[in-house]
């Protein structure tokens, strides 16, 4: 399949089942809401090294947030429900509660929930108080600037992590321009791109010659290893490969993000777009590139 002059390889992205949550952070000004959001989504690129994957889903206006202040919507994913619960407590506690003026609300109305505010409340040392508004239990934790207002329970649901595609370009600048355009197009509800500004250069393969490592550099896609690695997947003209990884609250959202991203990335100078998989033996989702592009 060709999009413009870019060949789309007939392969699939191998994605995994994860657990996902949506956190709404608000602040007195957009700056402080974003400060907390950046902090909360920091060091959250890959579950392999960070225990979770997180990113900013979008900005929210005053009309879209529970407390009528500017906000940011964050998606956070982990490999298990318990792991996600732990990461939420850690990150809301360390990154949102600490940030001036912020409040934190659940953004996912689903049946299954985990306790977040109900655990953080103990920071109040007995001065905390709760409020029940409708069915929503909220905690007020006194802090030096005023009080941190946080919802007790956050919804979690099964989600999809590790959707991906690789952009194989003729040089660095062309490839950067292609992935930047893709990332811009992929700002959609229900998905995040957990790597720095949405892009990863250190794509990995499972395993390593070093036994302690669960993953190592994807040598078949490293241009500098073309002559040394046991095999290469790179056409001769390709000098740069960048990958975009997508986590989403469901498979449909991930596929749609991949579709618009690939469409935006395809251009002159991008020789191929392909996807990372492990032979189909590890992940439960096989996101076929040709199929999702045909709609």
């Amino acid at each position: 399949m060709l999009i413009k002059s870019t060949e789309i390889i007939d392969t699939f992205a191998e994605a995994f089942g994860m657990w996902g949550s949506r956190v709404i952070v608000t602040g007195e000004t957009p700056k402080w809401a974003m400060a907390a959001a950046r902090s909360m989504t920091g060091f959250a690129t890959s579950v392999i090294g960070c225990k979770c994957e997180a990113g900013i889903e979008g900005l929210l206006t005053e009309d879209e947030t529970p407390d009528g202040r500017p906000g940011v919507s964050i998606l956070l994913f982990a490999g298990s429900a318990k792991g996600l619960a732990n990461r939420l407590v850690e990150r809301v506690g360390q990154c949102v509660m600490t940030c001036p003026t912020t409040a934190c609300f659940n953004g996912l109305e689903v049946e299954e929930t985990v306790n977040v505010g109900g655990k953080l409340r103990y920071f109040g040392d007995g001065y905390q108080s709760s409020k029940l508004l409708g069915d929503q239990r909220l905690w007020r934790i006194p802090v030096m600037e005023g009080e941190f207002f946080v919802e007790e329970s956050f919804g979690i649901q099964k989600a999809v992590g590790g959707g991906n595609f690789l952009v194989l370009g003729e040089d660095l600048n062309i490839t950067l321009a292609a992935v930047e355009a893709a990332v811009e197009a992929m700002q959609l509800p229900g998905v995040i791109l957990p790597f720095p500004d949405g892009v990863v250069r250190s794509g990995s393969k499972p395993g390593s010659k070093y036994k302690a490592l669960p993953a190592s550099t994807n040598d078949a896609y490293c241009p500098s290893l073309r002559g040394r690695a046991p095999r290469t997947e790179l056409p001769e003209e390709v000098t740069c490969v960048l990958e975009i990884v997508i986590d989403g609250l469901d498979e449909t959202a991930v596929k749609e993000a991949m579709r618009v991203g690939i469409m935006a990335a395809a251009r002159e100078g991008i020789r191929q777009i392909t996807a990372g998989n492990y032979g189909g033996n590890l992940g439960q989702y096989h996101l076929q590139l040709h199929e999702l592009l045909r709609g």
Binding site: T26, P66, D67, R69, L133, G134, L138, R140, G146, E147
Partner: peptide
């Protein structure tokens, strides 16, 4: 004297129940 975040949440809630809430209070 401060701005209690929770109170704004409540005022927005009752505004949706049909009360008129001045921005000054919000």
């Amino acid at each position: 004297t401060y701005k209690p975040t929770f109170l704004k949440r409540y005022l927005i809630y009752i505004k949706k129940l049909g009360f008129t809430i001045d921005d000054a209070y919000l």
